[in-house]
């Protein structure tokens, strides 16, 4: 890796409330175009890690270099400019239920909009067309003006993906994007992420619960345990012994087909 795209350097996060050490001296780097999967037990710090990268959570110590800039040092205004190039997809979709699909998708564009326009909710025509195109891409063009609370879980997550696409992201953070979905829907959602990774060259960092999904979609896997890095390597390198180390002695691997 000559010129890593993202470098996480001795990252530590302590939650003051409860004195939880969520991440301890975590270091790794990600090359452009990788599909990095983060695995680990519940509470191992996956969500914390992803949210530190775009600073939805303030890291306690350590550095995060993104494309040569140290994002931990940026002012709030500069951070906003960086964030608009980082898409994010959430386990609980984080959509405004009362708004339409296109209304939600358009919010992905907010980072590019001047203040007064956003205040009035006037998105340029180009943005509206782009939103429709992105909904088309995730197969939801016919649901554009349907309220989101009338969509199924898989459809909602695809709205979430379309929202992230609006940002023209260089980096995509996906925090357990398929945990709330059934296996078949999971694969269809993961395939959209894979497509973004392959076609648009978006670097993807996704946390996943199922190792089978991680093996199928990741180009590289890192594993967290109690906030520490316990594995970093290609999907094929996780054998039974490694698996037990990450998930504990009693764990059984479950397949998602």
């Amino acid at each position: 890796m000559a010129n890593p795209y993202l470098v996480v350097d001795n990252l530590t996060k302590v939650y003051e409330r409860g004195q939880v050490l969520a991440l301890r001296d975590l270091s790794f780097s990600v090359a452009k175009g990788e599909f990095l999967v983060v695995i680990g037990l519940s509470g191992s710090g996956k969500s914390t890690l992803l949210r530190c990268i775009n600073r939805l959570i303030e890291p306690t110590r350590g550095r995060i270099w993104l494309d040569g800039t140290d994002v931990t040092r940026l002012s709030p205004a500069r951070m906003r400019r960086v964030r608009r190039k980082i898409g994010m997809i959430f386990q609980q979709f984080n959509l405004v239920d009362r708004s339409t699909a296109i209304g939600n998708v358009l919010t992905g564009r907010l980072g590019y909009l001047p203040g007064w326009r956003a205040l009035l909710g006037w998105f340029p025509k180009a943005d509206r067309e782009k939103a429709l195109a992105n909904l088309e891409r995730v197969g939801l063009r016919d649901k554009a003006y349907v309220r989101v609370d009338q969509l199924s879980g898989g459809q909602r997550q695809r709205v979430g993906i379309a929202r992230a696409l609006m940002q023209d992201p260089d980096l995509l953070l996906a925090d357990e994007p398929v945990s709330a979905l059934d296996p078949a829907t999971s694969h269809s959602v993961m395939q959209y992420l894979e497509q973004m990774n392959r076609q648009d060259g978006v670097t993807v960092i996704a946390s996943l619960h199922f190792l089978s999904l991680a093996r199928r979609y990741g180009t590289r896997i890192i594993a967290l345990k109690d906030g520490q890095l316990v594995f970093d390597g290609p999907p094929t390198a996780i054998d039974n012994a490694k698996f037990k180390e990450i998930y504990g002695e009693d764990a059984e691997e479950v397949e998602v087909r």
Binding site: I86, M88, T107, L110, L113, A118, R163
Partner: peptide, 19 residues
């Protein structure tokens, strides 16, 4: 959740409130 999503997309405080 939706507030978090707007922050993540690079929204400002005013935009979070509005959208």
């Amino acid at each position: 959740g939706p507030l978090e999503a707007v922050w993540a997309a690079g929204g400002s405080r005013v935009q979070v409130v509005r959208h």
